[in-house]
Amino acid sequence: MNGQVEVSICYGTLCFVMGGSEFEMIQDQLPSDIRHLVLVKGMNCPGYCNSQENGKPPFVTINGKLIGQANLQKVISGIMGELANGTDK
């Protein structure tokens, strides 16, 4: 069941330079047992960086939920959280 969790990475230059480059390796870093459940996409800058309320870059959304100052570990635990929620239902 591909795409149970949708991860969108901001490909804007600001997010990329401020740490987002690490997400280029996300497919290799995902635990192999959940890799097939995650759909990783890129997005053009949606402008999250324009509002301080959103926190600091880089920005990633997981099933539409915004994560600021994202890094690989944060995103992987976010995905795990979504997967756990999904099986509760």
Partner: peptide, 17 residues
């Protein structure tokens, strides 16, 4: 390159567009 990247941020330049 790090300075180039930071300069692009400062000038609002987004390579993606």
């Amino acid at each position: 390159f790090e300075e180039l990247g930071s300069l692009m941020i400062a000038r609002g330049i987004d390579l993606q567009v």
